[in-house]
Design a protein around this nucleic acid. Structure first.
Lengths: 228, 228
DNA sequence: GAGACAATCATACGGTCGTTTTAAGCGTAC
DNA sequence: GTACGCTTAAAACGACCGTATGATTGTCTC
């Protein structure tokens, strides 16, 4: 119960309590889901008072948003970094589909490998449009707006001849493979009866890139065949 | 408050209340999720008494299981039907990857097109391994045991040269694309900015089959190239 | 008709939830 | 040294949760 004084200064040491809440919330949300995790669990785990949540964040919803944003921001920043490098290296010519996919997928799988629990987010994504009130819709443009725009253009450039609508379908399927891997990775062990290792980040990335690149390209070819 | 007498006979008319509960629960679970849907919501929506849930089902968990099993059984029966037809038609030679995929995917998309709300299940799948107590793990073998076994063999036959572990990876990715389409179909409209139509069942099936078939095959080829 | 029986009813129990209120502790500025 | 932010603390609020209980209903069997 002894707290050093610098924990409470407003000018000096920054909000320790706030970060403790965020850390505990992130851990518990990932483990039990959002609804099932109560503020009392979080504050008990963080060793802070219950009321601190509603003081630093205004509500549980805002806390969830803060946790997700903090978790996803570095991933998306790394994605844009890789895409920047890629485009700088390519110059005028378009980057290959595999390279764009790698830039998109690698930061996520890296984060997963580094122990960041990302399983909660795909689950949340699927829930956004079915939850009453759609309380979190504003998260999408805020967190994914830039990434979505940049990568849509990159994918379109890497898939010449595909209409924008078809590019969207392919991106959607590719995200699906990734999201399902993140959210239900353990299911892989069940399908393979223990033989496959979901924690093999490098192997997973390579397999994901090959799988999605081929799937996305196949749809282009098919389009060309049937339509052109 | 006037109820016809045949609603209460135990011998004659079958459990009307039970079905009303299942219907309301299915609708509300799909709309709000499992945790967020209370038994009071369900019984109010079904127009039955609160205690009826714990009378006909023993607990909320059992109700959830009953809802899911009722919803998924026809889908999986149809899957096996299509696979039976396919294998009977093929005789000794293996069915093509596309055909196996179609048998696997079509019943799900058909059900979705027919208005059966399936979005809740992928979400649940992702949650199974993170929920405390894993209260629903027994659902997987019960509902998917036969389907999983039969289709694993069919996929392996359609992907000659692939080790079982690699087949599992591919199935996992393919399921991911499907599950993500079911769970977050509306996200597609957002990516395409309203141009793509997620309710186009035939188009979705065709795109899914092409995408996943190509992805799964590409991993075989790559394996042959690098390993052979 | 009387009793057995399954189904439905109104109601209550013990808990937990998110949030609010009120008070206290602390560093800083005047 | 005292008034003033900012942060934490303890306790309570009203609401809702899943479940259990005991009475009541209508129907069937004898």
């Amino acid at each position: 119960m002894i707290v050093s004084s610098d924990q409470m200064t407003s000018a000096g040491g920054a909000g320790v309590t706030k970060d403790r809440i965020l850390d505990a919330a992130e851990r518990l949300f990932a483990e039990h889901g959002f609804q099932a995790t109560s503020l009392r669990h979080i504050t008990a785990d963080a060793g802070v008072n219950l009321a601190a949540v509603n003081y630093h964040f205004q509500s549980k919803e805002s806390l969830i948003l803060a946790v997700l944003i903090r978790k996803l921001e570095p991933v998306n920043r790394r994605r844009l970094e890789l895409l920047d490098e890629l485009e700088a290296r390519q110059g005028d010519s378009a980057a290959s589909l595999e390279e764009v996919l790698r830039a998109f997928l690698q930061p996520v799988l890296e984060a997963k490998a580094a122990g960041v629990e990302l399983a909660a987010f795909p689950r949340l994504l699927g829930r956004i449009y079915t939850e009453p009130g759609a309380w979190i819709e504003k998260l999408i443009p805020r967190v994914f707006g830039e990434v979505m725009g940049r990568f849509k253009a990159a994918f379109a450039a890497a898939l010449p001849g595909a209409e924008p609508v078809e590019v969207a379908w392919r991106i959607h399927f590719a995200i699906g493979s990734m999201a399902h891997f993140l959210a239900a990775g353990k299911l892989l062990e069940l399908i393979s009866m223990g033989a496959a290792d979901e924690s093999d980040a490098a192997g997973a990335l390579e397999r994901l890139v090959v799988f999605t690149a081929s799937g996305m390209r196949a749809m282009v070819w098919r389009n060309k065949e049937t339509a052109g």
